[in-house]
Amino acid sequence: MTRYFARKIGLYILAFWAGVTIDWAIPRLMPGNPIEAYLARFSLNSQGSWTALYKLFSKAFGYNLPLWDQYWHYWDNLFHGNLGISIYAFPEKVTTMVAQAAPYTLALLVPAIVLSYVLGNRIGAIAARRKILDNTVLPLGYLFQAMPYAWLALAAAFYLAQLERWFPVQGGSAVGIASGFTWAYIWGLVSHWFLPFLTVFLVSFGGWSIGMRNLVIYELETDYARYLRALGARSRLVRRYAYRNAVLPQLSGLALALGTVIGGNIVTEVVFQYPGLGHLIYIAATDQDYSLLQGIFIFIIAGVLVANFLIDIVYIVIDPRTRLSMQGAVA
């Protein structure tokens, strides 16, 4: 058990290190100088004040130090929970802004990922043996796979919110209602949440159900399934075994897909102007708020890694072979 986890955690630390290093290196490798870009916002008219301010900011952001020191300071700040100060919402701290936005993103993604995964697997497994379901779910799943997500979200926002007015078009909560534990406010939150949730759910659902359907069909043709059938086992039992085996590759698929899903969330939040991390990073990019941008990047990578760790734990729970091999038995 400890060996397995030590290995996994080592991998996560390595991935985190790579992410933070990329995050640190991008502003320093890219053409153009962040401080010059920042100074362009000041309407300075004399060369003297420009150089003076340039020196001041280089010192303030630590760009005058040797690269190695800059790298070291970056990690030092990170471990002290200091991600810098936002330029766009000066003088708000990046960590406060992330903390305000993160609940929206979590409330959107966690139910969408979990529900689409669970339901997609169930429906996909049923589709593998019901012709009617197979002929409806499968083409629909492929259709959702073929749609550009941004377009699906736009079309949903246009039809369901703009034309039919079933849902509010944009934002995260009702305008003009004080936040608090009141029905009106909570209803505002839920009605703004539903449409973004629905689009993410539908797209992921299609992918999982197709994957599960193919895996179950594959499992039903394996030797153990044939043997069970030859022994006269009821097809319900055979299917249950097939399902349990097919869930495993699906789960590692989920771990692989997390980065894509969490990245794709930016598009969702931009379409629906949903005030989560994706929307925040988009604002940071368009406003060239570099410290906010880098802070969110680190936070998102940490989120992907934590989610992966949770999936690892689930994997151990549902796959007895992993448990046995950890206890020294040969699976």
């Binding site: 991935a15 790579a18 992410g19 990329i22 995050d23 991008i26 692989l256 980065g259 894509t260 969490i262 990245g263 794709g264 930016i266 598009v267 990073i281 988009y282 990019a285 941008l293 880098q294 969110i296 990047f297 998102i300 990578i301 992907v304 890694l305 992966n308």
Partner: peptide, 11 residues
């Protein structure tokens, strides 16, 4: 796989 490409591209 771990590093979300869309986020990377935005940065």
């Amino acid at each position: 796989v771990m590093i979300p490409s869309l986020v990377l591209l935005i940065v």
